[in-house]
Design a protein around this nucleic acid. Structure first.
Lengths: 225, 225
DNA sequence: ACGTATTTTCACGGAATTTTCACATACCAC
DNA sequence: GTGGTATGTGAAAATTCCGTGAAAATACGT
């Protein structure tokens, strides 16, 4: 959903997003945006910062305040790169920005990136990293072609970490994300699962390449280069 | 990485980019470009559109198809300033183009602009200062591209200081902000952590550029220009 | 009900980190 | 320079944290 008062730019953005298969709707002002969005929620907003009659920031605030729209990512178009920090830094909740002038490739890349970040729960595709292959549908993990058997919890833990590579999770966060019932499980249980996963997927469990421990914090998954 | 068959122009481009501090590698044909780039990925491609034996557009397509190179920006050099070329080039995945003949100033400006657009930290929230990169999500600190290992407390201290650059903190304030338990820790412990961070991130720990001591007061983080 | 696979807990020991301290050195005022 | 104070340095002590092995608890199929 594009909100941009300059028709040339609006058309440009729409065109390039449609060229790679996205549906778009364009608005020249902030007016009916919230109403329409509520009717048929878009996957993403692209907002011009400068809009006649209440700027884009304001619109963003409205979107964020509306509970049904609050989760939808927002990308800002801005003429001044200097504004950028303000946008991301502020409590506005923008997810990225694109400085004008932008190249179509950049536009598409950022849109894809943001959508990827937010689509996570929906994504069902299998994950590849290094010589690891994780197939959520079949609950199968393959290491260098060899499939290894993992238990349900092991799999969910690995999947969650691998879907968020290079990102540190505390044990508590992992418990929240991976353990179904939010029962009272010792955070240290995570350690045990990490160990067993390492035994199964790491070349040398002593020097793990995938499942790195961030001492004092938690664990993270890394795709070896 | 410059790909241009006319040696005069290639030298010209290389010279002007090197004059402002960029490293360059030049190729007269599209041949080994992809291979070399894969070995040592450049920050940017400058491609002549007209190349003997498979033109620049083709090369660009190849680059875009290679997943490890696909993110690297491409600038085209073209003799024909026709708008059609521009659209075509951009849709192909080029990020800008420069029409020949070009002024050195224009060349450098465009290269800088494109690099600036793409240099933005990948994950939101990560801090960049000088040749330091601090990624709170992954708990990673990079110095000139090299990631250095820091402990949890070291990281929290560095992050806190870097988030408030050019601002002096007394040791007590740092203890309050960075240390988890509000226990009674000697303020001098801060010194030790500053030292260890300096050993890891400063070029010469004797003359620190980032972590400056403000005698009689405390420490502050400064981003060297 | 029984045996098996999985999940969860726990205590221990080694290792990494944190914290402290004594001393060396640098800085400042005089 | 001299003295006094503040910071840097090296290393040891204290503490925390994680990997390990194994046992207890739970689920699961036969």
């Amino acid at each position: 959903m594009i909100v941009e008062d300059d028709p040339d730019i609006a058309r440009l953005v729409a065109h390039h997003l449609e060229a790679v298969g996205y549906e778009t709707r364009s608005f020249a002002s902030a007016y009916e945006v919230v109403g329409c969005a509520r009717n048929e929620p878009p996957a993403l907003f692209v907002l011009d910062i400068m809009l006649p009659g209440g700027d884009g920031l304001n619109l963003c605030r409205q979107i964020r305040r509306n509970s049904s729209l609050a989760v939808i990512p927002v990308i800002f178009l801005t003429a001044k790169a200097a504004e950028a920090d303000r946008i991301l830094g502020l409590e506005l909740g923008a997810d990225d920005y694109i400085a004008k002038p932008f190249s179509p490739r950049e536009l598409v890349a950022r849109v894809k990136a943001v959508l990827r970040r937010f689509e996570r729960p929906l994504s069902q595709g299998s994950i590849r990293a290094g010589d690891l292959e994780i197939d959520p549908v079949g609950m199968v993990v393959k290491v260098r072609g060899e499939s290894v058997s993992v238990t349900a919890t092991e799999f969910r833990l690995l999947e969650h970490l691998a879907r968020n590579p290079a990102r540190v999770f505390t044990r508590d966060k992992l418990l929240d994300a991976v353990w179904r019932d939010t029962s009272f499980v010792t955070p240290r249980s995570v350690d045990v699962y990490v160990r067993r996963l390492r035994e199964k997927i790491e070349r040398d469990p002593e020097y793990p390449e995938y499942l790195r421990t961030m001492r004092g914090v938690g664990y993270k998954f890394e795709a070896p280069r």
